[in-house]
Amino acid sequence: MTFDRVWLRVVLVAACIGAVPTLSRAGGVGFGEDDANSGDDGPSYFGFVREVDGPGVADAKVTAALKDRGALVTRTDIMGVYKIPGFGKDINPDDVAITCAKDGYAQASVQRRPRDPSDTKDPVEVECYLKRK
C-alpha cells in the first residue's frame, strides 16, 4: 500500500466514521435528532473512480448493487472520490457489486482491496477504472 493510499484510507475512514451519527436516526417522535448509532450498520464503501492509468474522474456515477434487490447510487467528487454509507449489517459485503459509469467512458475494471472479514465495520475500499470510448 503506497503512502498516498494509506493517507486516503485514513481520511476516508475518518469521514465515514464521522458520517455514521449523521446517517443514523432512531425511531420515535421527532423532538430532536437522535444520533445514536443503531449498531445495525454494515461497512461503508469508498474509493476512487479513475481513468485507467490516469486521474480521478469527477461526477462519475457509482452504484453499490445487491443483485435483484436494490442499490445505493452516488457520484464522485471533484477528485474522483466517492463514499457510500452502506447497507445493513446483515448484508454480506461480498454480495455488493460496485460499478461506475460516466458518459464517454466504459468501465474497465473494478479492484477491491482486501479487508478483514471479521471486522464488520471495516469500510470496503473499491477502486473503479474507466476507459475513454
Binding site: 436516526r25 432512531a26 445495525d40 445487491l66 447497507f87
Partner: peptide, 11 residues
C-alpha cells in the same frame, strides 16, 4: 419496504 437492505433502526 424500500429500505429493507439499509441499516435497521434508522428512521
Amino acid at each position: 419496504d424500500p429500505f429493507k437492505f439499509l441499516p435497521k433502526g434508522r428512521q
